[in-house]
Design a protein around this nucleic acid. Sequence first.
DNA 1: AATGAATGAGGGTTCATTCAT
DNA 2: AATGAATGAACCCTCATTCAT
Lengths: 188, 188, 188, 188
Amino acid sequence: MVERILEAGARVLAEHGYDGASTSRIATAAGISPGSLYQYFPHKDAIVLAVLERYSDQLVAGITARMTGQFEQPAPVIVRATLAALLDGLDVEQPFLRAAVVHGPQLDDGRALRIFEDRIGELVLAYLTTRRDELRPGLSLPTAAWMLVRTVEHLTVRYLLDRPPVQRDHFLQELSQLTLNYLRPTST
Amino acid sequence: MVERILEAGARVLAEHGYDGASTSRIATAAGISPGSLYQYFPHKDAIVLAVLERYSDQLVAGITARMTGQFEQPAPVIVRATLAALLDGLDVEQPFLRAAVVHGPQLDDGRALRIFEDRIGELVLAYLTTRRDELRPGLSLPTAAWMLVRTVEHLTVRYLLDRPPVQRDHFLQELSQLTLNYLRPTST
Amino acid sequence: MVERILEAGARVLAEHGYDGASTSRIATAAGISPGSLYQYFPHKDAIVLAVLERYSDQLVAGITARMTGQFEQPAPVIVRATLAALLDGLDVEQPFLRAAVVHGPQLDDGRALRIFEDRIGELVLAYLTTRRDELRPGLSLPTAAWMLVRTVEHLTVRYLLDRPPVQRDHFLQELSQLTLNYLRPTST
Amino acid sequence: MVERILEAGARVLAEHGYDGASTSRIATAAGISPGSLYQYFPHKDAIVLAVLERYSDQLVAGITARMTGQFEQPAPVIVRATLAALLDGLDVEQPFLRAAVVHGPQLDDGRALRIFEDRIGELVLAYLTTRRDELRPGLSLPTAAWMLVRTVEHLTVRYLLDRPPVQRDHFLQELSQLTLNYLRPTST
DNA sequence: AATGAATGAGGGTTCATTCAT
DNA sequence: AATGAATGAACCCTCATTCAT
């Protein structure tokens, strides 16, 4: 039932966006009555939050799967693969992505987004740590992770939302480059 | 009169954020009646949009001023100066910045944000063009500009909104590094 | 307009009682839209409270008028006249009286009722003070006023609400007796 | 089972008052499910009514016990004892007393309150009848009982609910006086 | 041009009651 | 008999927008 509500919530979010996601619309989409929502969630935003968290969890799981055990691969390979996984994972209906990006930070004090970024950040940090000696000397790993996670996330979202006239491969290429160059020791 | 409304709108946005910016609050702040707003703007969001556009214009002007005539300076210098200008320009009241970032993209199909980014993008593109031969070969300048503008904008906003435990100078340093390294030719 | 709302509120209260006094019913009765209520009152209970306070004010004014300048009349005369005034003043539609008695004490922490009783209490206290030497020795005037105000108020309300098989005159007679005897010196 | 529900209802009423006494809260307190309530009671208010009736029964029993066989005692003694019994009997949790006083009259057309007052009234009437020759001549005993029962009940309730700055003994003294004086023959 | 009172659709939420299991 | 999830009508309130003055 919680499942059914979340699924309906996701569908409504994907179709109507956050502002169109009224409780009655979600209830109708779930084939239940408005009151039933409150048997499982304390208020509307808790539903939206749960939908976003579930999506976030899937995304994190996907990224994690793609990176795990690949740390010894050449950097360009694993970075590119990871970015591709993220791009694929974020490639959902635009209103849904927009709701996540716009309203996620407002729900429960940004809980969902914070958790997402923290978990991806830990993953990145772990990776950077194993590669520390190949990185630019003096680089603060936590700072680097903070920068990269937000950069990559935002550019990917923007790419999907704004659909700039750049090929997917080219975009991934540039994103990889941005990432790798940032970490790379500065020649000279 | 339009001026008065915009000024009031900015004040209300800075103090109460988007959700607290009701038409009556803006009207009160402007010392006029709610109905009068509609003599000058078709609806509430047009006011917010205009406020954001005015702010955006100032920001662009500031950045432009800082870059203009500085193209021949060493890259690290001009980049750093530009980033600092952006960081300063965006360092406004948090509710205002949040409103701009969260609701800007929703207003008139993202008009204000698009214009802002386009103009900064042109500036960056112009600069990159003058420096083309120092850049990574094969780099698509428009793509590079697209990437950099969004990256720098987003990281700066996040830095101001989330206040991560990173010193301002360190942050600017890393942001410069990210920018410069991205453009720099890859030493084999 | 406030007047119109109060009048409508009183009518709705008189016809449907407290529980039937929904905001939409009051608005309809006043010939306005629900939203307009909130231009003049912060919430529904403020309307009900204001209705009750207005009624209370009239009642107090009526009682005051009947007692003022009559202090030198024989006690049985003034007491009887006052009680009659109260009985008449409280003889409104039953649902209204019931709403006042049942919900008055719950609104704004009993404000309306407290004020009503305090004002009648002061009146009674003033009267008792002028008659002190005819009263039972050792009688605490404030306590006596407290007892009498509540007794008389309650019995009158109950008489009107329950319609016991007692003639109006007889009831007033007994109420007078209760009052006078309570105050009278106890003949050894 | 009915017993269990009533006990739970009383507890909930005492702790949360009428408005906080939702069916689900009562069910939880009784350790059963909401639906089961309807196996034993037709609707929520029937539960509350039954709770109040049970309480009323205890109260009546207590008063009766205190008066029975005491009729030959001096009037001041038995009156005072009876009033004290009432004051003690009504000295329950405020939310419970409030619920009884406020909502009792609304339940089943005031059934519980009517029965309570009728029974106390009969007791008083019986007592008055045995003392008829000491009472004010011409006094209608039923009317006197009606007046006294309501007066004493209300003043006691108000004393407990409003906690006026009057000592308990003083209050009982005045209440006795009010009662006795009302009945006493008027010295010329 | 300016007013600001009036609008009214729509929102989220509650809870006594029902009914399939 | 007992469950407890599901119901859904009804509630109070908000605020962008309108329009008579």
